[in-house]
Amino acid sequence: MLELHSISKNLGSFAMADISIKINNGEYFVLLGPSGVGKSVLVDIVAGLIKPDDGRIFWDNKDITLEPPEARGFAVAYQDYALFPHLTIRQNITYGLRATGCSSGKIASRLQMLTEMLNIHELLSRRPTNLSGGEQQRVALARALAIEPKLLLLDEPLSALDTNTRLRLRKELKRINKELGISVLHVTHDPEEAMTLADQICVMLDNKVQQIATPTQLFRKPSDPEVAEFLGIRNVLPVTKAEKGKCFVCDKNVYASSANASTSHIWIKPEEILLSIEPFDSSARNQFKCRVAELDHRDSLLAVHAICGKLTLIALITYTSLKKLEMEVGKDVYVTFKSSAVHCF
């Protein structure tokens, strides 16, 4: 179990303060945040490559703050792979085993196991320079896993890869975590990546920890609008007054089944908002007459920005619906959503 107690670091150009996190054994822990908040610095601090100005690091209740990286047994894989260019793939993977003086028998069996697991058998006698990005990252993972690390540190490991390779490797990371039971600290700026991989997500904004939660908790109850916005949540609205089952948002009464007196914000998934030209009767409790302010093309769907007084809502519709509703900027529409579709936090 890894524990960081109020880690602080000032590097001149940026500073982070009071970072405390805890990673349980076998847990897949994702550090999520935009670039420049010091996620990579934190990885280097955990690895022992940068000394924190303040705070302590514990592994299984033992203080390791001052231990050098080679004594920690935490392996790192970076975004740019950082393979040793003068060594073959075989030498790259076995580097750590040779450095720690393992027997040749152990080295051979470990190599065998890892090349099978990551499917890199045919690469062994090649050099890093003529490998694809995906291949290089597999090798970097094999090299990190070779030393049977207590903790695997991944610094944006998938960010430099094309979409298909990224999705494939993502699955493999999860599989490695589950099969080997190894704890992982994974740093990323991609909320979707965090969602699919993490047992716990720690959101870092403005050089400090904003929220630590499971993916489901995080999306159901983001701690504040900044976190919600970073997670890509749309239609986050501030609540001026709330009571059980109802809240007052932008001069409008919105029925929300989960609302209570402490609700400060609500959000509604764009997919759960219906648009129609005429008002219609339904079980949905919320219906507003709005004006279309903007049509925003994205992939296969269309985002419609609908305005009603101070209230702006974004709804997603298909191109077929666009034609059927004869949607255009300036047209009046009715937005409808259920009270159970309103998430409160």
């Binding site: 690895a47 022992g48 490559l49 990286p69 790192v76 750590g96 540190l153």
Partner: peptide
Amino acid sequence: PEKLEKVARTLGASPSRTFFT
């Protein structure tokens, strides 16, 4: 690249071993 030396250290190599290898 300094990163290569960092990786070597995390893999268990001492500073002198990192230097020579």
